[in-house]
Amino acid sequence: MLQFAILVNLMAFITTMIYNYTKSEKEKSEIKLQLLTHELERERDIQRERERISDDMHDDLGAGISAMKLQIEYIRNKVRDENVREDLDDLLNTSADMHLSMREMLWSLNSKNDNVQNFVFYVTNYAQNFFNKAITDVHFHSSNLSNAMISAETRRNLFLCLKEGMNNVYKHSSAKNVNFNFEQTDCQLIITLKDDGVGISPQKFMKGNGISSMKRRMALLAGDFHIIESEKGVHLCFILNL
């Protein structure tokens, strides 16, 4: 009887332990589900706020810049003083720069652009417009691009790196051609920018031309940036971990 009682108590103890463990695991699962639901809702709130800001900027700031541009053009057409016309031309250029900056901000805020394909599409269009007035021809090659997600912050920092590279080509290279290559692997996005210009010495290059800014931005993204040795021109490589 004693052995039977011990066996019964042992079974009851084991049953209680199993019940408590099962209950504990269920509670953990419920807590994880609640945290995940809360995080998803927070992400949706952030996305809605980004879209609201984007719409407000487009409607208010965009309309204001366009109105200012029209007013300046109207005044310029009425003015005969050449010095004043030159000052107004400067204002028109400033308003164009403001409009471009606003478009970049709207692009960075739009959550629909948070993927590799849309990022590459935007960079391609920007580069084509950027070099449109220069003697430099721009060429693009891409492979294995997907809809892999990249955050707005990542997009903006990576774009600013490429923009700095384009500015260097335009200002310093005297290049006839610039080539962009976009390649996606299982875990990385690799972008190279290469021109056929006059090149620049490594010592001078490392001291300026936005190199420190490119390095800093890529470091913030836990990515990599390096300069590839080239017989002609400058060859930049940006590596982003996806």
Rank of each mutant, 00 (worst) to 15 (best):
E164C: 08
H172R: 02
L162Q: 11
L160K: 07
L160N: 14
V169R: 00
L158T: 03
N168K: 02
N168W: 02
F180K: 01
L160T: 12
K171F: 15
L160F: 11
G165Y: 01
K171P: 04
V169A: 02
L162P: 05
F159V: 07
L160E: 10
R156I: 15
Q184P: 06
K163C: 06
D186K: 10
N157M: 06
H172F: 13
G165H: 04
F180E: 00
K176V: 11
G165V: 07
N168G: 10
E164T: 13
N168D: 10
Y170L: 12
N168F: 03
E183H: 10
F180I: 05
V178I: 05
E164Q: 09
N181V: 09
K163G: 04
G165A: 14
K171W: 11
N167L: 14
A175I: 02
F180Y: 00
Q184C: 03
H172V: 09
F159G: 12
V169C: 04
F180C: 01
D186L: 12
F180H: 00
C161E: 08
H172D: 08
M166S: 04
K171Y: 08
L158A: 10
F159C: 08
L158V: 10
Y170Q: 12
F180Q: 00
H172M: 06
F159T: 09
F182I: 05
C161F: 10
T185D: 10
F180W: 01
G165W: 00
K171H: 15
V178L: 00
Y170C: 10
L158N: 03
K176F: 13
Q184G: 05
S174V: 11
N157F: 05
H172P: 05
K163Q: 11
H172N: 03
N177F: 02
R156D: 14
E164G: 05
D186T: 08
N179Y: 03
E183V: 10
T185V: 05
N167R: 13
K163R: 14
N181W: 06
L162Y: 09
L158I: 08
K176Q: 09
N168S: 04
E183G: 05
N168H: 04
E164Y: 05
A175F: 06
V178F: 01
N179R: 08
A175H: 01
D186H: 15
T185F: 03
E164N: 12
F159W: 06
N157H: 08
L162F: 11
R156A: 15
Y170I: 14
Q184T: 03
F159S: 04
V178M: 00
M166I: 14
K163M: 15
V178R: 00
